[in-house]
Structures are given as structure tokens and as C-alpha cells.
Amino acid sequence: MTIQDTELLLQFRNPETKERAFTAIIRKYQEKLYWHIRRMVVEHEDANDVLQNVFIRVWNGLENFREDSQLYTWLYRIATNECLSYLEQQKRKSALPLDETESGLSNKVIADKYFDPNKLEWKLQLAIQQLPEKQRIVFTLRYYDEMPYEEMSRVLDTSEGALKASYHHAVKKIEDYILNH
């Protein structure tokens, strides 16, 4: 854990400096968490809701944080779980089968104001939405957030070997999708 995070945690446990420390934590991790969430739920409004829920959970649970892992790992874990819960809720609300829910996410990508089907980075986003949930998380955490497998295994409770295999499969599927679309 970085010294700065330890210092922030100490400040958070002091009622007088609690809010100031919390604000600092938000400012430090807000963008990373936002983009992690945004890539998972696609729409900004959804990402905003999920991100705020994540920080509310952090506020409620940070005093009990045991510090046996890095704060950033813990935050990513909360964010990932919150994303999965949100997507699960969406599935239940729409009562659509799993594959149709994934195509629902693709539709959200297409509905983005800046969507350009000719640009490769947008095709990549469409390809990511075709992936199974777990592979999607692994790919975005590795490809965009450059998270080491060791950290990722703590976030996702999965072995490093399984994560490497998931990442490999995900890359291959994305390549196939881009070549065929």
C-alpha cells in the first residue's frame, strides 16, 4: 500500500478529518474507477449511478478495511462487484436471455453520440461487448488498466493461470470479431 493511501486511511478514521480524507480518495481514484465501470455498463448515466454507489459502499466499509490488500485493489473489487450487480439487475428488469443482454450492451455502444462504425476503436468496443462477462472484465482490467495478474486474481478471486487463459481467449475472440465485421 502506498504511503499516501495509508495516510488517507488514518485521516478517514479520525472524525475531524474523515470527510476531507474521503474527498481525497474520491479525487484520486474517481477517473480510473469511472472508466472501468463505463467500459462495463457503456452508458454514462449508468456509470455515474454505479460509481456513486461504489463510493457510498466505500464510505460505509472503509473503517473496517483490514489493509491486507491495497486500497486500489479493494476499490476495484467493489467497483467490479457493483458493475456485475447492476448488469444482473438490468437482465432481470429486461427479462432477456443472456445473449440478448449482451446485444443490448452493443446497442448501447451504437447509440452513443460519438459512435463511428468506421473507427477501429469503436469496433473494438463492440467486440468487447460480445465477450462473456468474465472475459470482458479480465480484458478491460488488463488491456486498459494494465492490472498485474496477481492483483487481478485478488480482485476477481481467480487463479492467475485462469486469468491468463481468459485474457488469451478474449484477445482471440476480439480479433475474430474485428476481422469478420
Binding site: W35, R39, V42, H44, D116, L124, Q125, I178
Partner: peptide
């Protein structure tokens, strides 16, 4: 693993 994917810009196209 994939030369093609490695060449794609890692810039997220979403905006905020």
C-alpha cells in the same frame, strides 16, 4: 497473441 488488436488505439472512445 494478436497483432491486429495490438495496433488498435487503446484510447477509450467514450467521452465524459
Amino acid at each position: 497473441v494478436s497483432e491486429l488488436v495490438a495496433t488498435i488505439s487503446r484510447e477509450t472512445p467514450y467521452r465524459v
